[in-house]
Structures are given as structure tokens and as C-alpha cells.
């Protein structure tokens, strides 16, 4: 049984106008999102800004209240709790099982607390006694590759990469079952980014963590994830195991994304292919398939009928009417 199962998750923001705040429309930040994460698996949620990947992550963490859908979380085998309807208070004891790694290593640490206190805070909240807390903080610092002396220092003394390690140590303090990483390396320098990616991979191997990895960088995602879900304008358009998704994408948008990445190889010069047009506005997505105005393979059906996410013989899930007939190119 998977550790997390998201069913029909939607988050709509009303657009209000006038003195009486009448609702005149809705931003469908996330619309009928379905996926699951197996134990020990990393699922990457990728897409461009505004596609709803962060909204989905925040709904799972219940930093936001989803408009509809269920979030079935299973901390233990055979146990299943729907997080979506729970109140703040009811969520509190469950929080220790799902932890968040932030994008911005500067904003996510309280500048007024010493690193030792930051890492110990989850333990303190969980009621771990002082002696144990201190021992565990040292253990965690070692786990993320920081020296013991870091304990008595303030976050401002650390570089971006080191701060991200502190954030990871805090997230791991209560031995969570699921980690939600929201663009954890996108604010870091290339050389530091590599260190953090390796750290996350090592930690996952050692601790058997499950992870939802939200990112926009397809290169990073390739290294980190087991499966990838691609989002476009609030909806998932394709889900597949990483290797299969990169080699043989089954949705024209996935193909476009892969083609747009500048390859770090001058021999593949001029291999950037930019799709025409712009990302659709989630407040007024095009009818039918949201990608149809930019899609080179568009047919009349795409303009009127919204494709559902369906399983293909290859094991891919794709929301494209022509997924079976098209031969799309990925990364060789």
C-alpha cells in the first residue's frame, strides 16, 4: 500500500470583485490531481511556474485547505487517514510524519534561534526530554554533514548550502515517513546543489524515506526521482517512471519541456526547441486540453474535449487524446 494517495485534489481560489466581494471567477491552481507515492519512493512533481505543483505540495502539508479531494496518508501499513478534512488541532499529532524542506534556506530558519535550538524544536514540541534532545541534535548534525560546533551558532553564520543542511536536519528530527521537498536546491549554486542532491539521495537510502520532490529543473529531477508527474495549468498531464518519461515521453508538453532544456553539451548545439506561445492563465484555461493552443499535434477534438489521465500499455499515464498514436522524442 502506498504511503500517500492523492485523489481528486483541487484547490481553487475565488476571484472576487466589488464591494460585496462577489465571486466572479476561479483560479484553478490545482484541479482534480491524482497520484500516489509508494513507500521508499521519490515522486517528482514538475512543471513551470503557476502549474500548481507548489499548491499541491502545500495542500498535502495542509498549509492550505484543499477545495476538494482526499489526501490519504498511511504512516503505518494498514493505517489510512484522510488529511484533507482534518482541523489544525487534529493535524498536529500527525505532522511529525510528514516534513517539509523549503526552497529558500535563508527565510526558513528563524534568525533569532541558535542552530541547535532550531534542530531541537521538533523534538521539544514532541516532548522529548532534554538529554535525549541534545544527543539527537548531535546525531542529526552528523547525519547532514555539519560539525558539532554548529549547534551554538546562529543561521547567519552559514552559507546557503549549510543552511539547507540545517533545514534538512530539522525535517529529519522526528524520523518522518514522508518528506515534501519544495524546490530544495533551486536557490543554491551548482556546486552546492550537487552536494545537497547527493545528501538527499544518501539519506533516503539510509532512512528509507518516501519523498515528494517538487522541482522545475528536469536535470535535478532525473537524478533524484523514481517517478515523475508532469503538471500543466493545475492538472497532471503525464506520470511515468523517470527513465521512461525522459526516453519516451507520452505527452506533447513533456516533450516540449525536455526539448526546451539547454543541454550542457556544445556538440548538441542549437538543440533548443521552444514551444510557441505562453503558459495558459489558470484563471481562464483554454477549453478542452489546456495545452492545445501550443501543441504541434493538435486536432479538433483537443479543442473541445478535455483528455483524462489514462494508463497506456507502456505503463505511462498520459492525459492526451493522441497519446497512443504519437511517437514523441525525449532525451536520447
Amino acid at each position: 500500500m502506498s504511503i500517500l494517495q492523492v485523489k481528486g485534489l483541487s484547490k481553487h481560489y475565488p476571484i472576487q470583485a466589488g464591494f460585496l466581494r462577489r465571486e466572479i471567477g476561479r483560479v484553478r491552481a490545482a484541479d482534480d490531481v491524482n497520484f500516489s507515492i509508494a513507500r521508499g519512493e521519490t515522486l517528482a512533481l514538475v512543471g513551470e511556474s503557476g502549474c500548481g505543483k507548489t499548491t499541491v505540495a502545500r495542500c498535502i502539508l495542509r498549509a492550505q485547505q484543499p477545495t476538494a479531494g482526499s489526501i490519504l496518508f498511511s504512516p503505518e501499513e494498514g493505517q489510512s487517514i484522510d488529511l484533507a478534512p482534518l482541523s489544525r488541532r487534529a493535524l498536529r499529532p500527525l505532522r511529525r510524519h510528514i516534513q517539509l524542506i523549503f526552497q529558500d534556506p535563508y527565510a526558513s530558519l528563524n534568525p533569532r534561534m541558535m542552530v541547535g535550538d532550531i534542530i531541537a524544536e521538533p523534538l521539544l514540541i514532541a516532548g522529548v526530554p532534554l538529554k535525549e534532545r541534545q544527543a539527537r541534535v548531535l546525531e542529526l548534525l552528523d547525519l547532514v554533514g555539519l560539525p558539532m560546533a554548529a549547534r551554538t551558532r546562529f543561521p547567519h553564520a552559514f552559507s546557503g548550502g549549510q543552511r539547507q543542511r540545517i533545514g534538512i536536519a530539522r525535517a529529519l528530527a522526528l524520523q518522518p515517513k514522508l518528506i515534501v521537498a519544495d524546490e530544495p536546491v533551486s536557490a543554491l549554486d551548482v556546486s552546492v546543489q550537487a552536494q545537497i542532491i547527493n545528501l538527499l539521495l544518501d539519506l533516503q537510502d539510509r532512512l528509507g524515506l518516501s519523498m515528494l520532490f517538487v522541482a522545475h529543473d528536469l536535470g535535478v529531477v532525473r537524478h533524484v526521482s523514481d517517478r515523475v508527474a508532469v503538471m500543466y495549468v493545475g492538472r497532471i498531464v503525464e506520470v511515468a517512471p523517470t527513465t521512461a518519461l525522459y526516453a519516451t515521453p507520452k505527452h506533447p508538453y513533456t516533450q516540449a519541456l525536455l526539448a526546451a532544456v539547454p543541454k550542457a553539451d556544445p556538440a548538441l548545439r542549437d538543440a533548443i526547441f521552444a514551444p510557441a506561445g505562453e503558459v495558459a492563465d489558470p484563471a481562464k484555461p483554454p477549453p478542452g486540453c489546456a495545452f492545445h493552443p501550443r501543441c504541434p499535434f493538435v486536432i479538433d477534438r483537443c479543442r473541445v474535449e478535455r483528455p483524462e489521465l489514462t494508463e497506456l500499455p507502456s505503463g505511462h499515464l498520459s492525459a492526451c487524446h493522441r497519446a497512443r498514436e504519437l511517437t514523441l522524442t525525449g532525451v536520447p
Binding site: 542532491i197 539521495l201 532525473r222 537524478h223 533524484v224
Partner: peptide
């Protein structure tokens, strides 16, 4: 630099320190 053609869970070469 992360590689689009990496094998699953492939580690990256790193530069120590910051």
C-alpha cells in the same frame, strides 16, 4: 551539473565546501 541522461539515483560529482 545534473545530467538529463543520468541513471536513476545517480550521484553527482561535488566540489567540497562552499
Amino acid at each position: 551539473v545534473p545530467d538529463l541522461r543520468a541513471t536513476p539515483r545517480q550521484r553527482l560529482a561535488t566540489i567540497g565546501g562552499a
